[in-house]
Simulated assay, not measured.
Amino acid sequence: MTSQRSIRQQIQDSSPSFTPSERKLVRLLTGPSPVVALGSIHQLAKQANVSAPTVLRFAVKLGYSGFPEFQNAWLNELELKLSSPLKLIDHTHDDADNVFGRELGTLVESGINEATQAADVVRLLADLNRRIYIRGGRFSQPLAEYLYSHLREIRGNTEILGRNPTQDLDAIVDVSRKDIVVIFDYRRYQPDTLHLGKLASEQGATLVLFTDKWLSPIADLSSHVVVSDIVSGSAYDTLVPAMAQVEYFAMHLLKALGDKASRRLQRLEALRGSTAKPPR
């Protein structure tokens, strides 16, 4: 079987149909030690405290012909998920410059298609009674900053995290059930980002996650997951599709808030204009 969707995405798609035993298997596979799936079917069944036939039915339910095909796909996915720029250098092509732009265009289009399936995210961000916290990672913090810049203008009541770990904890301690925490987390997922997501989830916040098709562990805690394909043919993953998704949500949030956003922007422009005048 071949699929553009990762196994974790397939699991999410099939989640409503899982039996209690299959859910035990899901918890094990999506836990901190995904390498448990690389042993025999009987070893995996024992680890999950289920039967071997349950493991086989689970693989077939996801669309695989059997456990060996599922296991090979799982191994390939783990290798991709943990790939570093150093490892990816060996897989780049000499003609990359000729196709790089076309590949990015395809990835952006795919990312926007994913965003169109997340209309609930726009409605969530448009709730002006809810404070929003935004956090990125080592490479994705610019995405968080970009979304913050938009939301600060369009709706206000938004905080940026990720600039100082100590300040992050100081901010998270005040997070409540009324709040929204938006997190950007892509492969080679950061433990500190996961820790922050767990804290926010434990305090009842609604989590919105932007991630890749292999899904950050934070996906298990999130109410909304926005996926983009980040494989560009370069030694480095691309965040261009995710940037396009940020702009897509900003555009639709502006439309959703309508006059409220327009009046806020007018007030901001008036204030900026007054501060630009030289003193008398």
Rank of each mutant, 00 (worst) to 15 (best):
K255E: 10
R131Q: 14
T211P: 06
R187E: 05
L194W: 04
D168T: 03
G111C: 01
L82Y: 12
K198V: 08
A250M: 05
R187T: 00
D229A: 04
L78A: 00
A52V: 02
Y148N: 12
Q47T: 13
T2P: 08
L151R: 13
F18C: 00
V99M: 04
N157T: 02
G233P: 00
Y186N: 07
R23C: 05
A144Q: 08
N49Q: 15
K87M: 15
K213A: 06
F18Y: 06
L78C: 01
A144W: 01
L128K: 12
H224R: 10
V36A: 10
L271N: 12
H224I: 06
Q47A: 15
L143G: 06
R102N: 14
E153I: 11
P53L: 04
I134R: 07
I154K: 07
Q117G: 10
P191Q: 09
L38N: 07
P85W: 14
L265H: 02
K81E: 15
A256P: 00
H195T: 13
D174L: 13
L44H: 03
R23L: 15
T206Y: 09
Q47R: 14
A45K: 03
I11M: 02
K24W: 05
T2A: 11
P68R: 02
R187L: 07
D90V: 10
F210R: 03
G101K: 11
S262Q: 14
L56P: 01
Q167G: 07
L86K: 14
G162N: 00
Q203V: 08
G233D: 01
N164R: 01
E145Q: 14
E153C: 12
L75V: 06
R57D: 00
R272L: 11
V226S: 00
S110K: 13
S17E: 10
E109F: 08
L143H: 04
K198I: 10
A261D: 04
S176I: 09
L29S: 08
A171F: 10
K277N: 09
T19V: 03
A115E: 03
G137S: 09
R163S: 11
L254V: 01
R267H: 13
V246S: 06
P20N: 01
L44Y: 05
